[in-house]
Amino acid sequence: MSIDHTPIENISANQADSQRRKTLQGMAGILAGMTAPAWISSAWAQDKFPSKPITLIAPWPPGGSSDAVMRAFAESASRSLGVSVIVDNRPGAGGTLGATAMVNARPDGYMLTQLPLGVYRLPHMQKMPFDPVKDLTHIACLTGYTFGLVATMDAPFKTLKEMVAYAKANPGKVEYGSTGTGTTPHLAIEEFSQKAGIELNHIPYKGSAELMQAILGGHIRVMSGTTEFAPLVKEGKLRLLATLGRNRTKAFPDVPTVKESGWDTITESPFGIGGPKGMDPAVVRVLHDAFKKTLEDPKVLETLDRFFQPVIYMGTEEYTRYGARTFEAERSTIERLGLAKK
């Protein structure tokens, strides 16, 4: 656009009026072009979130209980958000690859992850590319794992006390599997075996599906894991020696906890949804509300019941405080077990 700069005094009154109007219109257009995109873009972004599919990282392989639960949450949240929530399986590194991905993810709400307990623990054991307090946005806690110690039906022990006696008589000969080094099932048994004064050989697997294949195939006699074992225990194919929570699970009321069996070990593991640091609070609120609503979905609740996972809800602020508190508690546990990074 060009603006005529002919001096007004050299033209007629009508021409001058016309010139003034053109000049004012031109300046208004320039100002509008300078200022409109910023506020229009901002309002558009706020009004349209979400406007494309959201990726939700499940840091475990497909086929296990964690995968099934995350897919149930994703499907339910998709209906509330009006866009697809796509589960992206990234197994390995003790369930921390989702948190690792958040470090370089844009904080726009389109990349999220499950936050298992290992996210707060492993940075104390080895160098990790993220700080769970500084580098993550805690959106909502939704549920938690129930852990158990399970044996094959042909194992030479039928109770936890019998397993401890056998391990003491055969030091180093009892092998147990878990979902990976540094995961909660692994460290729970390390703490238990330390208190029981026994030596167990740990065999890590990449996830619960692989772990279940190993024990059903007879490659290991004992496993520590979440309740993907539950259907097989009910079918009489595996034996549940003890659960690791504060109280007995309602699914197996006759099975004692590890603490009831004589060793002061309690392991509980809430988890929820997180994103990168620096997320817009308005976007966090939209995501929080959508995932909170999943806890009212009968299909989600049925999936949680199938894997004996209770509803453990925490809102954004409470979940953020939980993350900071748990990070420090895990530091103490790792130092006590002598597993802190050098």
Rank of each mutant, 00 (worst) to 15 (best):
A290T: 03
S41Q: 04
K206N: 13
N14P: 00
T96E: 02
N10L: 14
K127P: 01
A282P: 00
G218R: 11
A13W: 11
M70L: 14
H186Y: 01
A329D: 15
P61C: 11
T23K: 06
R90C: 00
S65T: 15
H5R: 13
W60T: 14
F252C: 09
P132L: 05
F291H: 05
K259V: 10
V233S: 10
D280A: 05
L56G: 12
A72L: 08
L337N: 07
G172I: 08
T183S: 14
I266L: 06
R321A: 15
T227K: 07
A140R: 15
A140H: 12
S208I: 04
K341N: 06
T35W: 02
T243F: 03
D297I: 10
I30Q: 14
A230K: 11
Y322H: 14
K127S: 14
F271G: 02
W60M: 11
I189C: 09
M314H: 12
A140S: 14
Y319K: 07
L240V: 11
G118I: 07
L295I: 05
P156V: 09
G218Q: 07
Y313I: 03
A13T: 13
T184V: 14
V164F: 03
Y166Q: 10
P231A: 12
N14M: 04
M102D: 04
M153Q: 15
L115M: 13
Y110I: 04
D254F: 01
F308K: 01
F130E: 07
I11L: 03
G338M: 05
K292W: 03
L160E: 04
E235V: 04
W44Q: 12
E235N: 13
A290I: 08
K52M: 07
I57W: 06
D254H: 11
G262I: 11
Q15Y: 00
P310E: 04
L337C: 05
V233L: 10
L117F: 05
S332G: 08
P53L: 11
G95Q: 06
I139T: 04
R79P: 01
L244T: 14
K161I: 08
A282F: 05
T113V: 05
K259Y: 02
S332V: 15
G245A: 13
F192G: 09
Q213D: 15
G144F: 01
D47C: 06
S65E: 15
T183A: 07
P171F: 10
S18C: 01
L136Y: 03
A77M: 07
E175M: 10
A329V: 07
D264V: 10
G217L: 06
T184D: 09
T137K: 06
H5P: 03
P256L: 12
G26R: 09
L301P: 01
M125V: 13
T316G: 04
I198P: 01
K158Y: 01
